[in-house]
C-alpha cells in the first residue's frame, strides 16, 4: 500500500511537469500549427531565470585577508553577499526564497523571449512544411543551449528550495499508517499544487475571457475569425508568449527537484512530445490527461516488482503505451479531426 501511494505521488509530480510543458507545446501547435522543438529550451531558460536571480542575489563583496593565504599563495578572499549587507535578515530571506521569487522575473522575461522568438523566427515558417519547422526550432534549441552553457558552464547548478519546505512530510500519518512509512518531499507537493493551479489558470483564461474565446475560435477556424476583422495573428503571438511563460514557470519551480543544466530542456522535450501525441495534437485537455497518465505509468513501471518480471520496462513503458493508444485511437486520447491530416 505504501509503495502504491508513493508511486502515485511520484507519478503525479512527474506528470505535472510533463503536463505543463506539453500544455504550452500543444497550445502553440493548436493555434499556430507549428511543431516547436525549441519548447524544451524554454523550460530550460525558465530554470536559468532562477539561476540568474540566485546569482544576482548572491553577488558578493570580496575583500582580501592578507593574513590568510590560499593553497596557491594568493590572499584568502572573504565574501559577503551585498544584499545581506544592505537588507540584513530580509536579504537572507530573499536568498532563501530565490526560487519562488524567480517567478516574478521569469514571467516578463519568458513573455519577451516567446514573442521575440515567434515574431523574429517562427512566423516565417508558418506556411512551410512541418519538417522545416522541426529543423529550424530544433536548431534554435541547440543555439539557446550553447548560449546558456557558455554563460553558466556544463555542470548542474543547485537551487535549494526555501528552508521551510526543504524537508519531507510524513503523509503516511495522515493516511493512518505507521510513522515514516510514506514520506514525501514538501517541495514536490508544492510543485504538484503549482502545476494544478497553472493548468487551472490557463484553462480559465481560455474558457472565461474574451481573449480566450477568440483564441479558441481561431484554433477551430482561423480563416473565419480573420474574416470577422479580428487580428488573430497578434493574438496567436501572445499565445506563443503565454506558452513560453508556462514552460518557463514550470522550469523555475522544477529547479529544486532537478539541478538545472543547459541540457535539461532536451531531456523533457521528447517525453513532452509523446505526451502531446498521446493526448491528441492540439488538445489542451488531452495534453494534461496524458501528462499525468504517462507520469504515473512511468513511476509504476520503475517498481522493483514490475522490473523483476519485465526488466527495462521503465525505460520503454511510455513509448509502448503511446504505440498502443495510437493504434486504438490514431488521433490520440482527445485529438480533433483534421489536425495534421491532409
Amino acid at each position: 500500500m505504501d509503495a502504491f501511494v508513493l508511486q502515485i505521488l511520484n507519478g503525479l509530480d512527474k506528470g505535472g511537469a510533463y503536463a505543463l510543458i506539453a500544455l504550452g507545446l500543444t497550445l502553440v501547435f493548436g493555434t499556430l500549427g507549428v511543431v516547436n522543438f525549441a519548447h524544451g529550451a524554454l523550460f530550460m531558460l525558465g530554470a536559468f531565470c532562477a539561476v540568474t536571480l540566485q546569482k544576482l542575489l548572491s553577488l558578493e563583496k570580496v575583500t582580501e585577508d592578507p593574513t590568510q593565504l590560499t593553497a596557491w599563495g594568493t590572499p584568502m578572499e572573504i565574501r559577503t553577499p551585498y544584499i545581506e549587507t544592505w537588507l540584513g535578515d530580509l536579504g537572507t530571506t530573499l536568498i532563501d526564497y530565490s526560487v519562488p521569487v524567480s517567478i516574478l522575473l521569469a514571467i516578463p522575461v519568458m513573455l519577451v523571449v516567446g514573442v521575440v522568438m515567434e515574431r523574429g523566427l517562427i512566423k516565417h515558417f508558418y506556411k512551410r512544411p512541418h519538417a522545416e519547422q522541426i529543423l529550424v526550432t530544433f536548431g534554435l534549441a541547440i543555439v539557446l543551449q550553447e548560449v546558456v552553457k557558455s554563460f553558466f558552464g556544463a555542470n548542474p547548478i543547485p537551487q535549494p528550495a526555501p528552508e521551510i519546505v526543504a524537508g519531507s512530510a510524513d503523509i503516511g500519518l495522515l493516511l493512518g499508517m505507521d510513522p515514516g512509512t510514506v514520506v514525501y518531499p514538501w517541495w514536490r507537493m508544492v510543485y504538484l499544487l503549482f502545476s494544478a493551479v497553472v493548468i487551472g489558470l490557463v484553462f480559465a483564461f481560455l474558457q472565461f475571457t474574451t481573449f480566450g474565446m477568440v483564441v479558441r475560435a481561431g484554433m477551430a477556424d482561423r480563416e473565419t475569425v480573420g474574416l470577422l476583422g479580428i487580428d488573430i495573428d497578434r493574438r496567436f503571438t501572445i499565445v506563443f508568449g503565454l506558452a513560453a511563460v508556462v514552460a518557463g514557470m514550470a522550469g523555475v519551480m522544477y529547479t529544486p527537484i532537478l539541478s538545472p543544466d543547459y541540457h535539461m530542456g532536451m531531456d523533457f522535450l521528447v517525453l513532452s512530445f509523446v505526451v502531446v501525441v498521446v493526448g491528441g495534437m492540439g488538445s489542451l485537455g488531452g495534453a494534461v490527461a496524458a501528462g499525468f497518465l504517462l507520469g504515473i505509468l512511468q513511476s509504476f513501471a520503475s517498481m522493483n516488482e514490475v522490473k523483476t518480471i519485465l526488466p527495462g520496462i521503465d525505460q520503454i513503458i511510455i513509448y509502448l503505451v503511446a504505440v498502443a493508444i495510437l493504434l486504438i485511437r490514431p488521433r490520440g486520447l482527445m485529438g480533433r479531426r483534421g489536425v495534421m491530416e491532409s
Binding site: 511520484n10 515514516g180 512509512t181 532537478l258 523533457f268
Partner: peptide, 22 residues
C-alpha cells in the same frame, strides 16, 4: 537488499528512490 539499474541521465530518480524508503 537490492541493486537497481537506472538509465543513464534519468534526471528525476524519485521513482527509484521511493522503493528504498521501506
Amino acid at each position: 537488499a537490492a541493486a537497481v539499474r537506472t538509465p543513464l541521465g534519468a534526471g528525476d530518480f524519485s521513482q527509484y528512490i521511493t522503493p528504498v524508503l521501506n
